[in-house]
């Protein structure tokens, strides 16, 4: 049967939402009705629907919609960079550990255990606390605590793959370990990586919001959904739109990523066919 025709609806919905968000983020300068930093003294915390300000304004009279469009850039950038960097690093460690085994594997696994023994957010808090807030430090901090997932999963699958007959066959015709890894094993673990990546991006976006709450996320003048939400949480009663819209944006994005991840897992899983 045609694989595409059986495409899980969750994949379509998830990918669709993400595509829309991406368009909004990339085209922020075209879509935003106001420059995101423009201060409007006469429109402080104006409610949604105020003429000219579709989603209302914030504590400095800045247009919320414009700020959220630009904020989408930051939130998605943080999420995507964390996944890509942590993914590359984690997968490499996992492949090397799984392929070489022995003391290399031992050391690599001890290191992942060290990272895992930290309360997850705490490590990020420590790194941002130490290096100061800001997007690059934030990404580093989130990478440090999330690469271990990739490493452990890839290593685990590698151990299983090593015993597979086709890998054994490759080895018997004299392929080197490196060739075996690239030719057979990497494709074998690719599915898991993609799935981990979607979930990883979701948790990175949420972790950024949590760090913003602790005062260690994105700082002014830049803004992410998390930092807009967290800066405005005191005004939840006066200007609920400042908390509701960025919160919904975060929620919808994370939901889209989870739908996509769930869908991909079932779709890619050979057992479900």
């Amino acid at each position: 049967m045609n694989r595409l025709s059986r495409l899980d609806p969750r994949i379509i919905v998830g990918a669709g939402i993400l595509a829309l968000l991406l368009i909004g983020a990339l085209g922020a300068s075209a879509f935003a009705p106001h420059p995101p930093e423009r201060i409007h003294d006469d429109f402080i915390m104006a409610p949604p629907g105020t003429p000219g300000f579709l989603l209302g304004t914030d504590t400095l009279g800045r247009d919320l919609l414009s700020r959220m469009l630009y904020g989408a850039r930051v939130s998605l950038l943080v999420g995507a960079s964390v996944v890509v960097i942590a993914g590359i690093f984690g997968v490499t460690v996992g492949l090397v550990a799984g392929a070489m085994g022995g003391w290399v594997d031992h050391v690599a696994m001890r290191i992942t255990e060290i990272i895992l023994s930290f309360p997850p957010l705490l490590l990020a808090v420590a790194i941002v606390g130490v290096r100061g807030p800001g997007v690059p430090n934030l990404i580093i901090a989130l990478v440090v605590f999330s690469w271990t997932d990739y490493a452990r999963v890839v290593r685990g699958e590698m151990l299983a793959l090593r015993e597979e007959p086709y890998v054994e066959a490759g080895r018997s015709i004299g392929m080197t370990e490196a060739q075996l890894v690239l030719r057979y094993m990497l494709p074998g673990v690719a599915n898991s990586i993609v799935i981990l990546g979607t979930f990883g991006m979701a948790s990175a976006i949420l972790a950024e919001a949590a760090l913003s709450f602790l005062g260690l996320g994105v700082v002014a003048p830049a803004a992410s959904w998390g930092s807009i939400l967290s800066d405005a949480r005191v005004f939840l009663r006066l200007a609920p739109h400042l908390v509701v819209f960025p919160g919904l944006a975060l929620m919808v994005t994370v939901m889209a990523l989870h739908l996509l991840g769930d869908g991909l897992r079932d779709w890619l899983d050979p057992r479900s066919k």
Binding site: A202, L206, A209, A210, F213, G226, V243, L250, H258, L259
Partner: peptide, 22 residues
């Protein structure tokens, strides 16, 4: 149940906490 699962993952903790308090 699936929707509930996804929702549980997607709510930022402090957001949920504040909403529950309110």
């Amino acid at each position: 149940a699936g929707l509930g699962t996804v929702l549980g993952f997607s709510l930022p903790g402090f957001w949920l906490g504040l909403l529950l308090i309110l």
